[in-house]
Design a binder for these strands. Sequence first.
DNA 1: GAACTTCGTCTATTTGATAGACAAAGCGCT
DNA 2: AGCGCTTTGTCTATCAAATAGACGAAGTTC
Lengths: 414, 414
Amino acid sequence: MTQSFRPRIKAPILLNSAEAEIIRALRRQGCITSSDITRMTGWSKAKTAQDIRDLVEKGFLMEAGEGISQGGRKPRLLCINRNLGFVVGVDIGATSVDVALADISGGILQRYSEAADVRQRPEPFLSRCVEIIFQLMDLQGCRSDQILGIGIGVPGPVDFARGVLVAPPLMPDWENFSIRGFVKESFPNAFVVVDNDVNIMALGEQRAGDGINVDHFIFVKIGTGIGAGIVSNGKIHRGSTGCAGDIGHICVDKNGPICRCGNTGCLEAMAAGPAIAEKAVQAALSGSSPFLKNLMNQNGGVLRPEDVNTACREGDQAALEIIRASGQMIGDVLAGLVNFFNPSHIFIGGGIANFGNHLLVSIRRAVLRRSLPLATTHLSINFSRMGADAGVTGAVALALEYLFVIEDQPTTTI
Amino acid sequence: MTQSFRPRIKAPILLNSAEAEIIRALRRQGCITSSDITRMTGWSKAKTAQDIRDLVEKGFLMEAGEGISQGGRKPRLLCINRNLGFVVGVDIGATSVDVALADISGGILQRYSEAADVRQRPEPFLSRCVEIIFQLMDLQGCRSDQILGIGIGVPGPVDFARGVLVAPPLMPDWENFSIRGFVKESFPNAFVVVDNDVNIMALGEQRAGDGINVDHFIFVKIGTGIGAGIVSNGKIHRGSTGCAGDIGHICVDKNGPICRCGNTGCLEAMAAGPAIAEKAVQAALSGSSPFLKNLMNQNGGVLRPEDVNTACREGDQAALEIIRASGQMIGDVLAGLVNFFNPSHIFIGGGIANFGNHLLVSIRRAVLRRSLPLATTHLSINFSRMGADAGVTGAVALALEYLFVIEDQPTTTI
DNA sequence: GAACTTCGTCTATTTGATAGACAAAGCGCT
DNA sequence: AGCGCTTTGTCTATCAAATAGACGAAGTTC
């Protein structure tokens, strides 16, 4: 054996249920011994040993030295073969792109973010993404054919089965463009999955955040737009055409302003980032907030949503009022969704997530006032603690979910 | 063998996945041959024959004569042993109770409805239900120990795991009362499952109505109250505390009337049966509807929601307006839920379901106006065609779902 | 150093499924 | 009626997967 062992693997990776169980245990625990598996699965020692031998032979597992003795002979440790392959998570936002390179068990190895404008055509945008991926691969010493899965989150309605955007308001040029096809040209061995950005954030929260082991939750992203990722019975709910969670265009006030969707008084038009900035400009111009006026002059006549937050921290009353109003409108909509969906957790993320407690308190108050007691007694509403990581973590998780496919799934209901 | 074969079975019935597959095939097709099973499962003839022998021995299957030849030897037909046991479905409404006795494959054998007042204490109410069940059993010649499963739907929020009502507005005396424990005293062999009435209607629509093979839908019941049964990824979504679907208390107008829940402008307070009747009384008194005034005098000063429907059919403009207003409010709420949940179907049932097209058109129009195009292009909004059957059919399906338990479910995700 | 544990391998055995031979039963054509 | 062909159902030999348990290697504890 003159050359190091490097099996050629192609996605998707088919596993039988026994193999899946072993790999799942390894993902959770990192390192594990053969008799650990025997104990947790109830299999005989021989079967466990045989399955492990097979997985090692196929290149999924490798030995990792000896463990500590439990009062007898030292066990041999097993871990996932991190050189088998890699997965990539891409989180495309309206104004930025986040890329992560991860090993096959979901551990992030390299990470990179940069500003980007999603309104350009998909080809140059995605070419730049691919370039970033190659740079991260170089840093890690990873070849193109070792990329086995790529998960991509995009800020618009996705037809999940086809992997294309349908009528995306932010990025009209992307409509029906095959993101999967374009990316796959550079990574022939990879399985490419495209999903809505909020869905991947929800997935990230479920896999690596506070949403772990939570059966029913809603991840609300508040930024330029407002959207929700939904988890029902432990699974992402995408809806019949894949556009579930589009709560930004729920009506809060029939007599409200006109939204870019054409309707009046949509939540997004009244409570999202641009609306907050617009209200701030008005407060500055009307003189009700000297602080904002000052900030606006410094910024060259423009105010961003973050400026309202800054003003609020400095004790500016008008800014506080703007944030409270936003929180209340969001809370009013969430109250209805809590009655309908009865989640145990609501996680709030996106650019607004660092707006601190004033926003959160307003949201909570509105939800508690308008939801049924049975639905709110055990309801937790909090900012996601994952920050910008939720997106890429979820994109990596999405890639992994579709990279490993379990064969022979028997019928689950009668 | 002097006595006919009657095995003693106790719920829940444990099946392995092969047995489950056979029984599922039999449920669908009614009668089936051994080689049919071979073809649809891909198993060898020997395995199929062996499994069938086992199921016949256990009493689940029985032979049903010979089938027609396919060009060779005649096959022996197999069917489910209908004498093995029975299940019961009970649909408790606010003012009525529906009971059905069904065989083990869900076919309804006997059915009975009567008026009942759910506001009384649970013991006498449920005693009457048990009495009805025994009467249906007598008609069918079925013994008490042959009842293997009982599904019960109740009009209020149910803690599904415990099988008790939690803070039910319609039936406060039932709070925390163990329906399961009470019913099980009369049917020691039965597995008793209690669920919300709207959930069982959704289940009925899914199993025996137009919801078959529909992954994501909402069943909306409009009657004295308004509630929704939710199916996500083909499964009932009950939410974290089991009260999902309580859409009757979503706000439609902050300045609206006070609801019994204490809030203002709830959908239920403005668009459900009592609100319709109340508006009709006002229309009668104000003189805007001579027809309703006439009807009210005939009824002794009282108007029911059905009277508005009658008036509308006769061309009464005020009644039409009342119905349209209700439909619009319901549609406005559903529009938000369509954006959030993206179902492919909405089924409308309950006492209002025979209000005809005016209501439906108003609902559809409101939903289409306020929902996103991607969510509505393939959305169907229709009355449930099951009428009063949805409840009991679903209750029977619920009982069956928990009566048969498939062992050794392997992990489905990695 | 003796007694007891744990770990990992190996063998004999059991269990479950398969392939394919074969007989029974039926159809269609001459 | 007879012949060839098909389908059905049973039986047997065989293969594959999992188990139990023996056994030696390697460690710990007293």
